[in-house]
Computed example of a mutant assay.
Amino acid sequence: MTSTVENVMTTEVAAVNRSAGFHTVAELLISRGVSGMPVLDDDNRVVGVVSEADLLAKQEFKERYYGDDYRPPLRARIRHASGSEGSGYRKSLGETAGDLMTSPAHVTTPDAPIVSAARLMDRHGVKRLPVVDPGGRLVGIVSRRDLIKVFLRQDQEIEQEVRTALHGQAEVTVHDAVVTLTGTYAERSQAVTALRLAGNIDGVVAVRDELAYKHDDIADLPMWGGA
C-alpha cells in the first residue's frame, strides 16, 4: 500500500481571504495555534500562504530602519543579501493577507504519494502544503507532522503487508518497524526484488537482509562498455 496525502491531511483548515486585514490574520494565527495558513481568492482557490514571518516583516523593517541598536538575525541578513529586500519591504507596508502573503503557494493534491509531498516540502523549505482539487480549490492541508504518521503503523500490520507483497516466499519478522527477511531464493535477482518490495511498504523504517540465493544471475549479466 502506498499512502497518499488524502490519508493523512487535515480537512479543517485555518485559511483567510486575500482581503483579510493584518489584525484578522494575526488573530487567526494565534487562535488556531498555527504558524502559517493558505490565502484564498473569492472562489476558494489558493493564491498564496501567509505566515508569522510575513507578519513579522513589518516589525523587522520598522526596527531595521528606525531602531539604532537593531541588528537583523542571520536568516534575515541572508535574505536581504540574496535580493529579496524589495519583497520584505513590501510586506512591511502590507495591510491585507494579499499584501503579506508569499505567492505562488507550493501545493499538493489528495492523490499525491506522501513521499512526493515530503520531497516538495524539503525542496522549498516549507513546513506545510495546502491540498487542492483539480480546480485549485482548497480541500485540506498537510504538515510535516502529518507525513510522519505513516511510521506509526503497527508491526503486525506491516508484517502482513510485506508477506502479501512477497507472496509468502520469504520469512518475515518485524520489530519497531524494522523488517528482517530470511530464506533462500533460486536467483539473486529475486532476493534483490524482495528487499526492494519490503522497503517500499509504508511505515518500514529499514530492511535487514538475511536472504540467501542459489544462483547469482546478476553476475551472469553481460558487462557493457568493456574492451
Rank of each mutant, 00 (worst) to 15 (best):
V5L: 09
N7G: 02
T11C: 04
E12Q: 15
V13D: 01
A14G: 10
A14V: 06
R18P: 00
A20P: 00
A20R: 13
G21E: 12
E27G: 08
I30Q: 13
I30L: 14
R32L: 01
V34C: 14
R45H: 14
D54W: 03
A57P: 00
R64Q: 06
G67P: 07
D69I: 02
D69L: 06
R71D: 13
R71H: 14
P73M: 01
R75I: 02
R75L: 10
R79C: 04
S87E: 15
S87D: 11
R90E: 12
S92M: 11
A97M: 07
A97H: 11
L100Y: 05
S103T: 15
T108P: 07
T109M: 07
T109W: 01
T109P: 00
V115E: 14
M121K: 08
R123S: 14
V131H: 06
V131Q: 04
P134D: 04
G140W: 00
I141H: 00
R144G: 13
L147A: 05
I148C: 04
K149L: 12
L152A: 15
L152P: 00
Q154L: 01
Q160K: 13
A165Y: 04
G168S: 11
V179P: 09
L181D: 09
Y185T: 08
Y185F: 15
G199L: 03
G199R: 10
D202P: 14
A206E: 13
V207Q: 03
L211T: 08
L211E: 10
D216M: 01
